[in-house]
Design a protein around this nucleic acid. Structure first.
Lengths: 119, 119
DNA sequence: CTGAATCCCTGTTGATACTG
DNA sequence: CAGTATCAACAGGGATTCAG
């Protein structure tokens, strides 16, 4: 399916794009997935938090749980002291690498042309 | 730049992905741009609202103004009665077609594998 | 001490009007 | 028709508290 040739035919609810939105909408979904894909190994909560940047614990927890439920991230809890929880991108989650890379590529090529006055 | 070979080196603030987030974060940015790219002609406010789906007037107005400021959308006001305002994707905005199509493509290929229990 | 849940606050987004 | 105003709901940040 191409973007053209859809015109008025495709209603909003049938558009796959809108399914995608629920996944990546929000401030932190993409950065988290991005880091997990790049790291590509089990990562502890604290390490991931530092890697992502300034995200709060609450928000990171919420997002990771959402990804886990959707099968994009695997969560492993170790019954240790101190407690250790590791997160790793799944095979399904890794397939997001290409699309996300395209987004980053667009920003590199055209980001300079964006008027930033609005920010 | 590839996603690999960055590892821990790229801080969150230097990542072009995070610049992109400000553009497309939120529930409606991508659907709106998507429709404008698909239509690829001047579109009236009401028509665009119907095309996007269930978006409210307030939100559509806000997003369109933001896109206009960034140079992704051109807004033309006609001093008529009834008032007519037309929106059209710019050349810069159209360059988003490929990345957005990638996102739609991913959803088509892998969307079925997502656990939807969370929604 | 790490991961996470809870309370409180703020800014954004949604719903439903109403105005030019 | 296009946009605004008002109010309600939610997302997200900061700090604190809790469990293991």
């Amino acid at each position: 399916m191409t973007l053209k040739n859809q015109q008025e035919t495709a209603s909003a609810s049938t558009c796959p794009m809108l399914q995608f939105i629920d996944l990546i909408a929000g401030k932190w979904a993409i950065p988290i997935l991005y880091r997990l894909i790049v790291m590509d190994r089990p990562v502890r909560f604290g390490e991931l938090q530092r890697a992502v940047g300034t995200i709060t614990q609450k928000e990171l927890t919420r997002q990771l749980r959402a990804f886990e439920q959707r099968g994009l991230v695997r969560r492993t809890v170790y019954a240790e002291v101190p407690p250790r929880v590791e997160y790793q991108i799944t095979a399904l989650g890794s397939t997001l690498q290409q699309p996300l890379q395209q987004l980053a590529g667009w920003m590199e090529r055209y980001g300079d042309q964006l008027n930033r006055s609005a920010s």
